[in-house]
Write a protein that binds this DNA or RNA. Structure first.
Length: 250
DNA sequence: AAAACCTCCAACCGCCAAGCG
DNA sequence: TCGCTTGGCGGTTGGAGGTTT
């Protein structure tokens, strides 16, 4: 990535100049976000649509917070990552003023190295005992409405989700969310399905929509409530650091 | 003072899903 | 149904600037 280099199509790459920033900012203030493919044509910017979009989202957009992450922001990030994994855009949508790129960069530079180091030390100290997850069954079409008797509980050692749909056979449970069982493909698949389901509008009172930032916040308020009621997040930062979901990454 | 090394983060890349004709 | 376009995302890169030797 050399500054002011260009690709085969003659599009400029590398760092943005103040003039380019102004062109992009002026355009979006006039026409709004979206229609990224029109921006180079209308502004004369010699940049691809992706580059324009990224520059706006990560740098030019108003209310973007700069500088170090505050302790509460890091805390929130860790908790959300515990639930969502590397879904940086969802995590960022929950941390005001921070972009997905910010969150991802912070995680990769500050948290990941530390957690890996701790994990290595842990492995040296004691052998890891693999915990087999409880068998679970779950339908992709399972109704996750509030009428379900869904319980999220913590037992101190590990964090458990359990649920029972009294009317049907859709019983499932996940044990030790924050433990090494996350290596297990079945559990990972389950979590993927779980969150995929939650991203859809679910029959009932909860509207899970991760499309817009405000909606994301609303969706995750449910998680906050469960935290308050059930102590789902009753674990310390150090515990989280020992059990990151970075194991999900290939 | 300067070379080597390290850290941070802006930007790029490739992939995927949705929308549309 | 298929192929194309577009928007969006996560992973990765590499240059700039800071720190250490």
């Amino acid at each position: 990535m050399t500054p002011s280099s260009s690709n085969g199509l003659g599009l400029k790459k590398g760092a943005w100049s103040a003039h380019e920033d102004k062109l992009l900012k002026d355009y979006i203030e006039q026409y709004g976000e979206g229609k990224w493919h029109l921006i180079p044509r209308r502004t004369g910017l010699n940049r691809c649509r992706k580059s324009c979009r990224l520059r706006w989202l990560n740098y030019l957009r108003p209310n973007i917070k700069r500088g170090d992450f505050a302790e509460d922001e890091v805390d929130l990030m860790l908790r959300l990552h515990q639930i969502l994994g590397n879904r940086w855009s969802l995590i960022a949508g929950r941390i005001p003023g921070r972009t997905a790129n910010d969150v991802k960069n912070y995680w990769n530079t500050h948290i990941q190295p530390r957690s890996k180091q701790q994990k290595t030390e842990l492995l040296q100290d004691a052998p890891v005992t693999s915990i087999n997850p409880q068998p679970h069954t779950m339908s992709k079409t399972q109704n996750l409405s509030t009428s379900d008797k869904t319980q999220i509980v913590s037992n101190g050692g590990g964090n458990f989700i359990s649920s029972s749909n009294e009317g049907g056979n859709n019983n499932f449970n996940v044990s030790s969310l924050s433990s090494n069982v996350l290596h297990d493909d079945k559990i990972k698949k389950y979590l993927d399905e779980l969150f995929d389901d939650r991203e859809m509008e679910i029959e009932g009172d909860i509207e899970w929509s991760f499309g817009e930032s405000s909606a994301q916040a609303e969706a995750l308020d449910v998680v906050d409530q469960e935290e308050e009621n059930n102590g789902f997040f009753d674990f310390s930062l150090d515990e989280i650091m020992l059990n990151p979901m970075d194991s999900q990454q290939p």
